[in-house]
Write a protein that binds this DNA or RNA. Structure first.
Lengths: 226, 226
DNA sequence: TGCATACTTCGTTTATTATCAAAGTGTGAA
DNA sequence: TTCACACTTTGATAATAAACGAAGTATGCA
């Protein structure tokens, strides 16, 4: 039984996957395929093996399937192995998405740490009304209307899209809500157009630019300690 | 690097070897081949791999080559893995030589825990003289002469053998001395003839019999807590 | 010296496993 | 319903590695 587990860890592509997940974040099959440097189909087989051995767990959310470490026991074992390997622990392979790439897109809106921070800040500023309801839907306060319009977002057109306007979308890997719906989509569009963030890797991860850092502070009063 | 280590642990025969060594004792290539359920040549390849990866260390002593875990780091990693596997730790495979088989032959005399206990007891009883010298040689006191003769050992013939009479032979796996030389050989011969011990596995390990347990107490005052 | 024992190295066969492309499944958005 | 996307399953190929016997090395003992 131990041998099955150890050999599951021991295959190089699978080792890269596990050590990438060691930061506690959940990642999709596609992201992990890039990290593991194998094709999506190969990664899928590896992920299935790791799941069967109980090393990782899977949460399906819509189109995406999020993989993460199964528990602290797994992290402990990986740590013990890296000590054996003489690696000063936490030293991942170069092309692992680091904590710096802390923003991700969730479908077409912004998730990840950055998305959560923005959501919380907008709520604190009193721009959102609601959110506690059954479907977590938001509407905008007068301040909110003014703010988003001033960012160049056409709220009238946004409301007319055949889509929920705004709601608290749970990014389960952060276990915190971010802004979903048509408004979330427009915010991401604006952020990318203004080059506050730039796409990265498989275009599901985002990096904060220097400009973005400045503008976040100026417009919303958010300081990112990246 | 981690993947090399994990896959070294992951092969079933190698896993058996490592978990057998987890009790801290050193074992020979032949013993480990039996534990791993592979041929001596295959075991040799596995042991070499484990040594290269830094998981076990090797001490050559005469004809024998003793393998043991390289350090506590290795034991920690193995423990972390067995927790992952849901094994309540320390639960080894059935045919692992257990602590019960605590006696071993060293060439033709008795080593292991039992050998050490006998050596220490004989010394405490004042049957041995010397042992502190350059070559750890022992001679016998009057009490010693009487005792071994009464066991049926022909000391005159033993002394005439073209071999050192008696000396403190270091069983490094116990880090304690036992009785080497012609006398050690005679003691083992007697112990086997009287069926205090019986050979086991590859005939390098011995099991204490019920009779042996009784006789050890009666003749030497040794209590084995097996 | 010669013989036995302990162990390793070599060479070959066999079994396992990782790999990818192509086809298939399921979901979200228009 | 359509398309696009995320991901998985399948099947065939290629690489890896474990197994053993036979031969080789080294040591102890007589």
């Amino acid at each position: 039984m131990v041998s099955r587990i150890a050999s599951a860890i021991g295959e190089p592509a699978r080792t890269r996957i596990l050590y990438c997940l060691l930061d506690g974040h959940a990642r999709t099959s596609t992201e992990l395929a890039i990290v593991a440097e194998v094709s999506p189909s190969t990664a899928s087989v590896h992920l299935n093996r790791l799941r069967i051995e109980g090393l990782i767990k899977l949460v399906a959310q819509g189109k995406h399937r999020y993989y993460s470490l199964a528990g602290t026991n797994v992290a402990r074992a990986l740590e013990a192995l890296s000590i054996l390997a003489g690696q000063p622990r936490g030293k991942f392979t170069p092309n692992t998405p680091s904590e710096l790439r802390f923003a991700r897109t969730c479908y077409d809106h912004m998730a990840g740490t950055a998305g959560v921070l923005l959501h919380n800040r907008f709520k604190d500023l009193g721009w959102f009304i609601g959110g506690a309801g059954k479907d977590n839907s938001y509407s905008l306060s007068h301040d909110g209307e003014m703010a988003f319009e001033s960012l160049g977002i056409d709220l009238k057109a946004t409301r007319e899209r055949r889509r929920r306007f705004a709601y608290a979308c749970l990014d389960w890997s952060e276990r915190q809500p971010h802004i979903g719906g048509a408004l979330g989509s427009e915010i991401l569009k604006t952020a990318l157009k203004r080059q506050w963030f730039e796409p990265d890797l498989d275009s599901r991860t985002l990096s904060l630019t220097m400009l973005g850092k400045r503008e976040m502070l100026r417009l919303f009063g958010i300081t990112f300690n990246v």
